[in-house]
């Protein structure tokens, strides 16, 4: 277990990494990345059981899949700060010949990434496959995944949701980044999702909500509860209520920063709100 203060410091540094990465190349997705910083920092440094180093097969450890690949800045920062690859490599985000592609890929051999994602809606199927293999291998570690809420508009998710419940894939925790926003606006305006908890429950999942998905203690408690609910015949869904752009005042309460980088002034303001804790890359 990691104490909340050190996780909070890590979150602040991850925010700085995200902002500086997208600013440098004037592209990328800061909003969703910032919204999931607390969750992914807690997941990788508190919730998941991880081996040292990285191998593709992930036997004998928990594995995680990022389905909404556009929030690559946050996963890159979290992985680098967890020691999967040198922190300095964050400097190459979205540049030619970089392992840190715009959306995550295994193709360039970046440690920590087990599947390409970006074209939405595919990660849950992949995570279910990995969970089935863990069962076949007698490996009682868990599979985790993260999905955007807007991403659930992709039909493949519902094939996967139906399959996981129908086949008792109960070594799997899928988390939905429930920020209620997508590129074109509010999910309610683009294509209403209805009640996600009712939908997952109707399909046969065990659903729990983390109502403050940007609070480390709430995430710790919620994910501990989610873990406690695995192994009981049902896949577990966590509805993680987050604020897109969290930690940067002008990026919050709007979908405007879904896929837009800050300019020099905006970066300065955003970094001033998040003073360096662990040192910039």
């Amino acid at each position: 277990m990691s104490d909340n203060k050190s996780l909070e410091n890590l979150v602040t540094q991850v925010r700085r990494d995200i902002l500086r990465m997208v600013h440098k190349v004037n592209s990328g997705h800061p909003g969703g990345s910032l919204g999931c910083a607390e969750f992914l920092v807690t997941l990788y440094n508190d919730t998941m059981k991880l081996k040292d180093g990285f191998d593709m097969d992930g036997k004998g450890e928990d594995v995680f899949f990022l389905s909404n690949g556009h929030i690559s800045p946050v996963i890159y920062s979290v992985l680098a700060r967890r020691g999967y690859f040198p922190v300095d490599e964050l400097n190459t985000f979205r540049l030619l010949d970089s392992r840190l592609q715009g959306h995550p890929t295994t193709h360039e051999g970046l440690p920590g990434i087990r599947i390409a994602s970006g074209s939405l809606g595919q990660g849950m199927s992949v995570a279910i496959g990995a969970a089935l293999t863990k069962k076949l291998n007698g490996d009682n570690h868990l599979v985790y995944s993260l999905h955007g809420d807007g991403e659930l508009q992709e039909g493949q998710n519902w094939e996967a949701i139906m399959y996981a419940a129908g086949n008792n894939v109960d070594n799997y925790i899928a988390t939905i980044d429930y920020n209620k926003k997508q590129i074109d606006g509010a999910t309610d305006d683009v294509l209403p999702l209805g009640s996600l908890s009712d939908k997952f429950e109707a399909f046969g999942w065990d659903v729990l909500e983390i109502t403050d998905g940007n609070n480390i203690q709430a995430i710790k408690d919620g994910m501990a509860e989610a873990k406690a609910r695995t192994g009981k015949g049902k896949p577990v869904c966590v509805l993680l209520h987050t604020e897109m752009g969290n930690g940067v005042d002008f990026m919050m309460n709007t979908h405007a920063w879904h896929g837009k980088a800050p300019n020099d002034e905006q970066l300065e303001s955003a970094l001033a709100q998040n003073p360096a804790t662990l040192g910039d890359y």
């Binding site: 594995v63 599947i115 990660g123 199927s125 279910i128 291998n137 493949q156 399959y163």
Partner: peptide, 19 residues
């Protein structure tokens, strides 16, 4: 089931761990 997209994704995931 009649869900080919899910089948391909599950197959991709099953390779992780050596299947």
């Amino acid at each position: 089931g009649i869900a080919e997209a899910n089948m391909i994704g599950i197959a991709a995931g099953m390779t992780i761990g050596g299947k």
